[in-house]
Design a protein around this nucleic acid. Structure first.
Length: 364
DNA sequence: AAAACGGGGGA
DNA sequence: TCCCCAGTTTT
């Protein structure tokens, strides 16, 4: 990776062959971009770095006052390196993600130790510092020195996947590689400082995740997602991991008065302490439970009902209900705090999981 | 309630 | 190289 200032191929050192993407973006930026952010006046490598770290997981509006306070207390890199950790954390207090502050502090010390108290003007050396990855390094180098490097943060991923109609979750290595290549293909040969800011501004203000303002977008006529009506589908969201499918048997017992037998769940775990129909892992265990709790009733006489599908955040549960009417319990089981007959009128006041309530109330 | 976020760290 | 995490905000 080269550290030198923008290198230009012989044919491309002029504005005429600026990529259409970059050209339109820069024109838009001149009028609509953010030109008065605190780290832009004055712009120094230290201030650019600090702003990029703050902006990693924080919006401009939130970060700005913290930035001002931070640079007022620690105006340059050696001051940061010399400050106690507590001071740094105090200045960061309220911003969250405190690992950023620890990395920032550690990186400042490394810069004093290895780079003469300055940030290194080299992508690999920047990336080697804690808290700086490929995109942050490129954002720093382009904004601090105007060096020609592509960034690929969440904003740019969103813009490029829409503009080029790139489907597939951007976190996947193959998709991310493709997006990096596209980002590099659009790099202009001039105005890198503005170009980098322009991409972030477009993503943050127009090409937003929800409800993008396409009619205001300078790229709307070339944007594949816009042309093909796929703006809402791109970028492809993270594929939810396929939730494991579990099964359970549900025993629905009604007595001679049409009261329903409910069981209180254990105080921890799924549906903690709620009242549900007695449940078993499989049919054999359901039969076993049935034999142990009921008097003179025939398990096989139960009426098999359509299964209920229920989705939890981390697994899917299919409940197989089976119903018996006019059931009596064994004397030894009886009513107690965790296993009771409830009349229909009493159900309303109980904590009952939604799918179970739906099942038993739909029947009447 | 769940997805998004950028870097770090472990597999 | 890839995958997943921590920690927080946004949708």
């Amino acid at each position: 990776m080269s550290m030198k200032a923008p290198s230009h191929s012989a044919k491309s050192n002029n504005n005429d062959d600026t990529d259409a993407f970059a050209g339109k973006l820069l024109e838009w930026f001149d009028v609509n971009g953010r030109h008065d952010l605190p780290w832009q006046h004055p712009r120094s490598p230290y201030r650019v770095w600090l702003s990029e770290i703050m902006l990693q997981q924080t919006q401009v509006k939130t970060a700005a006052p913290y930035f001002e306070r931070f640079v007022a207390a620690l105006p340059n890199l050696p001051a940061l390196a010399a400050a106690p950790m507590d001071t740094v954390l105090g200045l960061w207090s309220g911003l969250g993600y405190y690992a950023r502050a620890r990395n920032l502090h550690a990186a400042a010390k490394l810069c004093v130790e290895h780079h003469g108290g300055d940030l290194p003007r080299d992508l690999d050396a920047l990336t080697a510092l804690p808290g700086i990855g490929r995109s942050t390094a490129a954002a720093i180098a382009s904004q601090a020195w105007g060096d020609r490097h592509a960034i690929l943060d969440g904003n740019v991923k969103r813009v490029l996947s829409r503009y080029h109609g790139v489907a597939g979750y951007p976190g996947l290595p193959a998709i991310e590689r493709q997006l990096w290549a596209l980002a590099e293909s659009h790099l202009p040969h001039t105005r890198m400082v503005d170009y980098t800011q322009a991409q972030m501004d477009l993503g943050a203000t127009l090409c937003t995740r929800a409800d993008p303002a396409c009619i205001l977008c300078p790229l709307q006529h070339e944007c594949i997602a816009r042309i093909e009506g796929r703006v809402a589908e791109l970028p492809t969201p993270k594929p939810g991991k396929v939730a494991p499918q579990r099964h359970a048997q549900v025993l629905w017992l009604l007595d001679a008065d049409d009261r329903v037998l409910l069981q209180r769940r254990p105080p921890v775990g799924i549906w903690a302490s709620l009242w549900t129909l007695p449940q078993a892992d499989d049919e054999a265990q359901a039969a076993q439970w049935f034999a142990a709790h009921t008097a003179h009733a025939d398990f096989d006489a139960g009426e098999t009902l359509p299964p209920i599908a229920h989705a939890f955040s981390h697994y899917k549960l299919e409940l197989q209900p089976r119903r018996w009417r006019r059931v009596a319990l064994r004397d030894a089981v009886g009513d107690n705090d965790d296993l009771r007959w409830y009349s229909r009128a009493e159900l309303a006041a109980l904590g009952i999981p939604a799918p179970i309530r739906k099942l038993i109330e739909a029947a009447l």
